[in-house]
Each structure stands twice: as C-alpha cells, then as structure tokens.
Amino acid sequence: MLQMIYNFLESFAYISLAAIGMSIVYGITGITNMAQGEFMLIGALVVSYLCGVAGIPFIIGIVLAMAVTAIAGIILDRLVLVRLYNRPGDSLVCTYGVSIALMQVGTILTGVGAPAVQSPFGTLVVGNRSYSVYKILLIAISFILFGLLYVVFNKSRFGLHARATMEKREIAASLGINVSKMNILVIVLASALGGLGGALYAPTMSVTGTYGSNFLTHAFVAMIIGGSNPLVGTLMAAGLLAVVESFLSLYFGAFIGRIGMLLVAIVIIRLIPGGFSGLVERMMVRLRKR
C-alpha cells in the first residue's frame, strides 16, 4: 500500500515538474512551447558536466542550471517567441522547429550520453522496501513548488498582474500592466523551472539528446487537460494522470499504463473542454453565487 502511494507520488512529481513550465507559458501568454523539453535538457547537461565531471556540489549545480536555462529562455523569447504573441496558433509548429534543432545539438554534444551524476543521499528502508531518499526529496520539491507558486500568484503584485493578463490580456494592458515585461518574466520563470526539473532528474536517467522528449508527452497532455490556470490545472492534471498511469502500470504493465493515460486524457477533453481549470472556475462561480 505504501508502495502504491510512493509510486503515485513519484509519477505525480515527474509529471508536475515537467508540465509546470509549459503550463505557465500557455496560461499567461497562450503559447504552446514545444521546446520545454529542451530547456530540461539544458538543465540536465549543465548539471551533468558541472557535477559529474568538474565535481561541483549538486546544489550549486542546480542553481547554475536554472540560471543558464533562464538565459536560454530569454534568448528564445527575444529571438522567436516575441513575434508569436499575436499568433499563438503558429507557436506549436515554430517551437517544434526550435525543439528538433536543439535536440540534434544535444545529440551531437552528448554522443553516447552525458557523464553520469550520482543521485545524492541514499535509501530509506521501511519494512522490506527501500525508497530512494532522493526521489522522496523530489516529491517534496514538487509540493513546495506548488506552494511557492501559489504564494507568488496570489499574494504578490507580480502574481496579480499575471492573473489579470491570464484572464484578459487587452484589458490588463489598458490598465497599465506592462504586458511585454510580463511575457519576459513568464518565460524566464518557465524556463528556469524547466531547467530545475531537468537538472533534478538528471541523476536518475541517462542524459542524451532526446532527454527532453521523454518528458514532453506527459507535459503536453497535462498542460492540455489542466487548462489555462497553471496552478490548479497542472496540480489536478498531474494528479489524475499520475493515478491512472501508476495504477495501470503496477497491475497491467507499462504499456497499458501509457495507453491508459492517453485515453483518459482524450476522455477528459471530451467531457471537460476547458480542462480542469475551466471546471474549477465554473465550480467557484457557482459557489460564489450562493
């Protein structure tokens, strides 16, 4: 039983860390960033080379990974994304182009695979099982992240502006919110989160050029069924997908787990077109009316 909860939480953390960056960008700017996986790759590469080869402590490696990825995000924004804000529909194909180019660069750089990074801490033994302390830490990080984002979005000025932009861009702009600065900040946040996720998972997986695409399917699906609110949407989407996938994988194998997750996503979209965000929004409206 404990094992099931652990597997579920593990899956939840994985999907959340992958999807949060994409959801934030999608929710606030409407752009689908298919290159999010490559931000994670950049984060993982930084950590692999700094920690695996140069021996720099892991924590510093992660901070540096976030910084480097944030810079990459700014570059991407200024070069590409800034021209897409008015036509979000084209963003999917455009960022897909960026993604395949970066993926190939990654493959050329890493060849067989980037140098391995050991996952720090050891294992925790409970009863007959050992649990990777590191994985438990990742689960904790994903929750802390949601908590932090909640505080940022609901209690800070920036969060207020972000939520306004999310609701109605034009009106937010006419109220004096600097929408273009908002966009840059959002991209920086999303790419840093991507770098964080990529760096955190680097010790547990092999880092090759296609590292990012491992996360992309889950992130994309979670983003879609989460809807436009990155907090509520991603949380619930990650939760549901994690439940489905971990449960099905445990009893029927990884293949059924994968298919089940995709089919559930299709059903959710069919039933709740606005995603979980839309659902929650309608519930809140109904609650307030009473």
């Binding site: 021209r83 194909v93 455009c94 182009g97 395949i100 180019a101 190939q104 050329i108």
Partner: peptide, 20 residues
Amino acid sequence: SSYSQIIQGIVLVLIMLFIP
C-alpha cells in the same frame, strides 16, 4: 550529415516567423 535536423529546425522557425 548530423546537421540536417538542426538546419530543418532553423528553416522551419525562420519561415514560420517571417513568411507566415
């Protein structure tokens, strides 16, 4: 060529941006 995908990606981005 290992660079073909990189070129494809860049060309795609350029065309989507500038010749929509």
